[in-house]
Design a binder for these strands. Structure first.
Length: 369
DNA sequence: CAAGCGTGGTG
DNA sequence: TCACCAAGCTT
């Protein structure tokens, strides 16, 4: 609607200005030391919804542990998840292994070079395909991420809602007309650097931006109105009980299901309290009564709930807010089967891939990892 | 297509 | 405590 149009002279001017700035001020990042598609790929997956300074140490260690596509394809999944622990969105690394195996099995270990082919690989969507194709293979294709949305929506005053999937096509068309045939990878990376420096979401510094004269929203004084994005609903509250059960010196641990949240990661048994409001139990007796009732659903089960910590652990995910009551329990071998659990020596706990919420539970219980 | 899927930082 | 943001993809 409000979208500004650029003529060919303006486009050329913008390209030159942006690339000159990138040559002078572009960041020296570990994955920019070469254009190896493996390096580009790993960094791009890690950077999805994740900031650069968080990714850097993970990237270094990942390359240490899995230096090649083959090493990644052959790695035990538990090792992959351990390498990813703390990054979140754990399906990313499981999809990476599927992708590595597809490359070896279906592509003879050779990366396809076009965005269209790359999109066929597991875990590589439109953005990552564009990034790999342009950076590693010099293909003049857009890589539309959050930075590109923010930068181009402001430059051109594009008011389409970026929360809607179809809006991506609009941005791809706009950027396709602006991206240079020469140095498309540098162009895409320059847009990202711009979006994380002078053109940030909340505190842009457009007055000092190398492209301020192209930034129509800034010139009009309304850059914070862009990009337009509908809000997401607040996380839904969910109540759990965490069972801290020691068998001798060992702790009872369970592996999460292979689908859904925190897939294949390890936690103590977590019992969801669908029909109970236990976020703020008045006392131990009330909580024990509720938990006992819940456990009675399986008559073989003989859990002795003998202690608890009334200070709940809370953890907020993108769409759920967990409130977790901790109980110490004595369990029998039958309970182990009920929970599909495994007894783990304290020294072995650190080898398991553990999500943040589980680290909080251990911390609250005074258990060192 | 809308919803599901983590974590850390900031105001 | 909360809302929102940060190099998205899958189903």
């Amino acid at each position: 609607m409000l979208t500004i149009e650029w003529d060919d002279v303006t486009i050329k001017d913008f390209q030159t200005t942006l690339l000159n700035w990138f040559d002078q001020e572009g960041r020296d990042l570990p994955w920019r030391h070469d254009h190896d598609p493996y390096h580009v790929w790993v960094s791009e997956i890690m950077l999805q919804q994740t900031q650069v300074q968080t990714v850097i140490p993970y990237y270094q260690r990942f390359m240490d542990w899995f230096p090649t596509v083959t090493a990644l394809a052959n790695a035990p999944e538990e090792r992959l998840l351990k390498a990813w622990q703390g990054l979140g969105y754990y399906s990313r690394v499981r999809n990476m292994q599927r992708c590595a195996r597809q490359l070896l099995a279906d592509y003879d270990g050779q990366w396809p070079q076009t965005a269209a082919e790359l999109t066929q690989l597991t875990g590589i969507g439109p953005y990552t395909a564009g990034a790999i194709a342009s950076i590693a293979f010099n293909q003049p294709v857009p890589a539309v991420d959050g930075n590109a949305y923010r930068v181009f929506s402001r430059l051109l005053k594009i008011d389409a809602d970026i929360a809607k999937p179809q809006t991506r096509k609009l941005f791809e068309q706009v950027i396709a007309r602006i991206i240079p045939r020469e140095r498309p990878g540098d162009f895409n990376q320059a847009i990202m650097d711009l979006g994380s420096s002078y053109m940030t979401a909340r505190q842009p510094d457009s007055a000092h931006s190398p492209v301020r004269r192209f930034n129509q929203a800034y010139l009009d004084g309304d850059e914070l109105q862009y990009p337009v994005k509908t809000k997401k609903p607040r996380p839904k509250p969910v109540a759990y009980v965490a069972v801290l059960a020691r068998m001798g010196e060992q702790w009872l641990m369970t592996q999460r299901p292979s689908n859904g949240m925190l897939a294949n990661l390890w936690t103590v048994p977590l019992i969801k309290l669908d029909d109970l409001d236990l976020e703020n139990p008045r006392d131990f007796d009330e909580l024990r009564a509720a938990i006992t009732a819940r456990f009675k659903h399986d008559s073989r089960l003989d859990v002795q709930v003998n202690q608890l910590d009334l200070r709940a652990v809370t953890h907020t995910f993108t769409h759920q807010k967990w409130t977790i009551q901790l109980v110490a329990a004595t369990v029998t071998p039958a309970d182990l089967a009920y929970f599909a659990g495994q007894s783990v020596a304290p020294s072995a706990l650190a080898q398991l891939p553990i999500p943040k919420v589980q680290a909080k539970i251990f911390d609250r219980a005074g258990i060192e990892l």
